[in-house]
């Protein structure tokens, strides 16, 4: 469960923010899940629930998930494409490598326009905290 490690990051960061902003309760955390990393939302939710158990500030917290399509742009010919369009051409090992380190997409994917591996991940890379809301 690699998702667990990233869920720990979300909770640790939220606790840090709550201390900085002197929040006694966290009401909502909005988490963006970038498509490229293919995080399993159910496993991620389970990990979050398990990790927050001993922490009182999370008693009434809603974890809201927003999925973001992964968009890639070629540096050479400027072609833009979505990861989802290429997913079916990848085997399980390649998909798993990208799951662990999304930058491995540069090995297992090429620009559909010119074939270059020199592309950027414009959006939808991985896990991101969009916002943390709470009460003082």
């Amino acid at each position: 469960m690699h998702e667990w490690a990233l869920a720990e990051g979300v909770i640790d960061t939220t606790v840090k923010v709550s201390r900085e902003k002197k929040l006694k309760e966290i009401s909502r955390v909005v988490i963006t899940l970038g498509e490229l990393q293919q995080i399993d939302e159910e496993i991620f939710k389970f990990a979050l629930r398990e990790i927050i158990k001993p922490t009182s500030i999370f008693k009434k917290t809603e974890f809201k998930f927003e999925k973001e399509k992964a968009v890639l742009r070629c540096k050479v010919c400027t072609t833009e494409w979505e990861f989802g369009d290429m997913l079916c051409g990848l085997d399980d090992v390649e998909v798993e490598s990208i799951h662990f380190i999304p930058e491995m997409s540069h090995i297992y994917m090429k620009c559909p326009g010119c074939g270059s591996r020199d592309f950027e991940i414009v959006k939808g890379r991985g896990v991101w905290i969009a916002s943390i809301e709470g009460m003082e």
Partner: peptide, 25 residues
């Protein structure tokens, strides 16, 4: 483990992100 013996053609931001990911997990 993830790149196998393939060349990794990435720029600085991707290097940073890969390092952060490895250290975080």
């Amino acid at each position: 483990y993830y790149a196998k013996e393939n060349p990794l053609t990435v720029r600085g931001i991707d290097i940073s992100n890969s390092i952060i990911e490895l250290l975080a997990i």
